[in-house]
Nucleic acid binder design. Structure first.
Length: 905
RNA sequence: GGGCGCUUAGCUCAGUUGGUUAGAGCAUCUCGUUUACACCGAGAGGGUCGAGGGUUCGAAUCCCCCAGCGCCCACCA
């Protein structure tokens, strides 16, 4: 064994080298082995837009723990890495960069092909950056199976699924109200709309016979219908009648209808509707077969066709002007300046959402076409069943409720986006010559144009043009979550029937942040159940994963979201790796975090775990210094263990392993990590190594426990443990070792208990102003120097009598006859008690009195309890006996305390 | 408006089916440095477990109510 361990662990020096070693060893590569069970995790693909942030770091840390643990358990563990093209996010970043470079309106200036080339270059570049960052975290993923959502084979998967859903009528083109982002010029899904509270003006206008309230006067240009509640007495007489009166641009005719959806208590109880720019109004208009004229165009301006005076104006301009017009006509009744409402903004682009009626592509969530457990079910129903029936478990459970609630409110999913970066929709429209020419003349960039041209003819699926003239391919792309939804099986080769797919799917667990439960997790269930289900494939094989583990978000020390705009609290994982090691960062992200709960992170926390990493290093260093290479045996029998301390640490290790294994089963990674942390630091180092210093060491046990601890720690802190493993001069890497199992032969319950008692005694003696010392070269394991006048140290009366019981030490009934140095044996451990260091009698008296008082109180309450009939009747016997014994003990303690007090006086 | 959480030491958080006198890390203070480690060791102080009520022999834990904070969903004409 070569020995060149520095006195502290230098992560920077080793981490990259160790990662290369793992990669070279093909330890990450998952092999199909029918004798083994598979364990698959599909890595949530980071967006190919830039840099790794803490959200990725926490995901990588937890998943790597799962994977390394499974691998060490002997399962064929596959972790599929990859990246996501992140349609809107990426395109908007690239467009912004180009604009900063001075290229105005990049879509028009560059055109489709050139812009896509720009984006592709950008994405390739960030993919490289991300790959390296994933390596920096120590992620043991199978790089040979790396995927990208725009790879050819994943493209094929997307198109295949689209085709099938299209033919099943699950994907349809429909004119419905969608969330339109005028800034990015695209639709976004319902889930991608965020609401931001905003203070705005709320206007009350005289609208013919009624007063209406609105925050958006500009949408009222063409309102022609008044809606009231049928029960509303104020308006009952008007229902069904028509009115003619002066409005924004001259006289208009208006009809009054009644519908129960109107809230009488809200505003004036009367409203007008704008079907083209409000979901509720749109649904009402459909119910009563009303027109839904478009008022605001796709650029967010008033349409010229709609208004002579306001056409072409932006919303803000028009709003002011319209209110002015109405004021001049005397129709403004009141303006509420402090109206607070929620402004809908796009989750990605932060553009203000304008609802628009458009023909777009949707996934029907209510059509019953999936064969599921003997019935034809809808997407919604299958989504519900997978979780309700327990096929898929969500950790923590509270998210199951949130999931069901989401399904209840789920509407058809709009999957078409009017951007270019992504999977182009594989459908073609039959148009006439005029439409064809016009489309091409005007650039044909998005389906917005198809809407303007009113394309409404035959539609065919295909990735190449159907035969015949005048076919136009839909220029739009699919929602990025559509391809992401296929991630677990498209990465394994679907639609081809690959061996990988058969062996590694369904994946064991999906680990991700709870913030994308709906965006992604639910949609994966949606896509997988539909895509994989057939008569030959049973339901249980048609789920993407068996468990969903949702981690919390990382927040700064004040509980706020970390954002790059605040560099003071924003932590860059790479900085932290550089400063404190990847291992320390990993621990800080895992320990103290419970699934589904947000966690606060700050630098001191990471520094704390860096200290622990160093502790592992030094404990190993100490052990290795003390043991020559051929000095220990890896296998030994229980009979060879003689020392109490050895028996104690081995038993403790067994218990630790058992408990850690249980924690892994229950996804309690934080608990598992904390237990190993505590065992290594507070038991192995603070007790076992200290004790071994003065004694004849048993190198077998010393090394055995250390090696087991390294194995236990490896999933959490792979780098440092692997590096230390090298010093054992083994051929095989630690990553490929098997995870420790409890060795039942090394279970010495009696000695374990004894040693725990010794620890307690020593602690009590220590707290009595004493010192723990180890004397080299002596036979004894522990020497305790207790304070002088031990007889006056009240706390230890009990200790002394317990010591007496355990040893041959003679004390009188009050335990106060120890007046000089003594050494006693507890088992094979000798405790040496010289008396020195005088304590302050006054102080002692005071604290003694306090203690006696609190003891009295406690004894009183115990006595009350033991007199209580219902306690005696109902409490379990063991508890009663326990309490009785305790009372006895406390009474003797009280006696001793009182005696001690007398003695002092 | 509907739903879901959270509130435990100065700070960050554990506390598994109710069961000894409620725990850890950091921070603070005191002492120490011996065969690994100052990124160290030993010790101390610090909590009416958000408020109130209930169930129970026994509640941080279960139930009710109140307060504060947060999240999700819906919607705001």
């Amino acid at each position: 064994m070569s020995f060149d361990m520095e006195s502290s662990y230098i992560a920077k020096k080793y981490e990259d080298e160790i990662y290369r070693k793992w990669e070279k060893s093909s330890a990450f590569k998952a092999v199909i082995d029918r004798k083994k069970k598979s364990f698959t995790v599909a890595m949530p693909p980071p967006n190919a837009t830039g840099v790794l942030h803490l959200g990725h770091a926490v995901m990588l840390a937890i998943e790597d723990i799962m994977i390394r643990h499974a691998r060490m358990q002997g399962r064929s563990a596959l972790w599929i890495p990859g990246t996501d093209h992140a349609a809107i996010a990426t395109q908007s970043v690239v467009e912004r960069n180009l604009e900063e470079k001075g290229i105005k309106n990049p879509r028009e200036t560059l055109g489709r092909e050139k812009l896509l080339k720009e984006i592709r270059g950008f994405a390739e570049n960030s993919k490289d950056v991300i790959r390296n960052q994933i390596r920096k975290m120590g992620a043991s993923c199978d790089w040979s199976r790396e995927k990208y959502t725009l790879d050819d084979d994943l493209n094929l998967a997307v198109n295949t699924l689209f085709e099938r859903m299209f033919k099943d009528g699950l994907i349809y083109r429909g004119g419905r109200i969608v969330n339109w982002d005028p800034k990015m010029q695209t639709t976004v899904a319902d889930d991608e709309v965020e609401y931001v509270e905003e203070k705005a003006k709320f206007y009350y206008f005289q609208y013919g016979p009624v007063v209406i309230g609105t925050a958006r006067p500009e949408t009222k240009l063409l309102d022609k219908v008044i809606v009231v509640n049928p029960k509303d007495k104020r308006y009952k007489h008007m229902v069904g009648k028509e009115f003619e009166f002066e409005w924004i641009e001259g006289k208009i005719k208006t009809k009054v209808i009644a519908d129960p959806c109107v809230d009488m208590s809200l505003g004036t109880g009367a409203m007008t509707i704008t079907p083209a720019h409000s979901l509720v109004d749109f649904e009402l208009a459909q119910k009563y077969k009303l027109d839904s004229p478009q008022i605001i165009d796709f650029d967010g301006k008033i349409r010229k066709e709609v208004s002579k005076n306001f056409g072409g104006m932006t919303i803000e301009e028009a709003r002011g002007k319209i209110v002015e017009t109405l004021r001049n006509k005397g129709l403004v009744k009141k303006i509420d300046e402090n109206y607070v409402h929620n402004l809908a903004v796009s989750y990605r682009g932060k553009g203000i959402i304008e609802p628009q009626v458009m023909k777009q592509w949707f996934v029907d969530v209510n059509k019953k076409v999936i064969s599921w457990k003997g019935k034809k079910l809808s997407i919604k129903e299958v989504l519900q069943d997978t979780v309700k029936s327990g096929m898929i478990k969500i950790v923590p459970k509270k998210f199951e409720k949130i999931y069901f609630h989401w399904i209840d409110n789920l509407r058809d999913w709009c999957i078409s986006r009017q951007i270019w970066w992504g999977h182009q929709i594989p459908v073609w429209y039959k148009v006439n010559k005029k439409q064809y020419d016009e489309f091409n003349k005007r650039g044909g960039s998005t389906s917005t144009l198809l809407n303007i041209l009113n394309v409404d003819g035959e539609v065919r699926y295909g990735t190449s043009s159907p035969k015949g003239q005048y076919w136009l391919r839909d220029p739009d792309t699919l929602d990025t979550w559509f391809s992401a939804a296929l991630w677990t099986f498209s990465t394994l080769g679907w639609p081809k029937k690959t061996e990988d797919l058969k062996y590694f799917h369904p994946t064991a667990i999906l680990e991700t942040g709870y913030d994308i439960l709906f965006f992604w997790v639910a949609r994966m269930i949606l896509a997988t159940t539909y895509a994989l289900r057939s008569d030959k494939v049973p339901e249980a094989k048609c789920i993407p994963f068996k468990t969903v583990y949702l981690h919390g978000l990382i927040r700064d020390r004040h509980g706020k979201k970390m954002s790059k705009s605040n560099p003071e609290t924003c932590i860059d994982p790479l900085d932290m790796i550089d400063k404190y090691s990847a291992d320390a960062l990993r621990l800080s992200l895992v320990i103290g975090s419970t699934p589904g709960n947000d966690m606060r992170l700050y630098e001191e926390k990471i520094a704390g775990y860096r200290n622990f990493i160093n502790k592992i290093w030094n404990a190993s260093r100490f052990a290795l210094i003390n043991v020559e290479s051929k000095d220990f045996k890896e296998e030994f029998s229980a009979a060879k263990i003689k020392n109490t301390a050895d028996k104690w640490i081995l038993t403790g290790l067994g218990r630790l392993i058992k408990s850690v294994e249980k924690d892994f089963e229950n996804h309690r990674y934080s608990d598992a990590g904390m237990k190993i942390y505590d065992f290594l630091w507070s038991q192995y180092c603070d007790w076992y190594l200290e004790i071994s210093k003065g004694a004849d060491k048993n190198p077998d046990v010393l090394i055995y426990v250390l090696q087991n601890l390294l194995k236990l720690l490896h999933p959490f802190v792979p780098f440092v443990t692997e590096k230390i493993w090298e010093f054992f001069g083994k051929e095989n890497l630690l990553i490929g070792q098997s995870f420790p199992q409890e060795n039942k032969k090394f279970n010495f319950a009696k000695e374990y208990k004894n040693f725990e008692l010794i620890k307690e005694i020593i602690l009590q003696l220590r707290s009595a102003k004493s010192e723990a010392r180890v004397e080299p070269g002596k036979k004894i394991d522990v020497i305790i120097y207790a304070g002088k006048h031990l007889k006056n140290i009240t706390k230890n009366a009990n200790v002394i009598s317990r010591l007496a019981r355990l040893s041959s030490l003679k004390v009188d009934k009050h335990g106060e006859k120890i007046t000089q140095a003594k050494s006693i044996f507890v088992g094979d451990i000798e405790i040496y008690i010289p008396l020195k260091n005088l304590l302050n009698p006054d102080k002692e008296k005071k604290s003694l009195n306090e203690e006696i008082n609190s003891k009295r109180k406690f004894i009183h309450s115990l006595e009350q309890k033991l007199k209580n009939q219902s306690f005696l009747k109902n409490a379990p016997k063991e508890v009663v006996n326990q309490q009785k014994e305790r009372l006895k003990l406390e009474l003797t303690n009280l006696k001793r305390l009182s005696n001690r007090l007398k003695y002092l006086v």
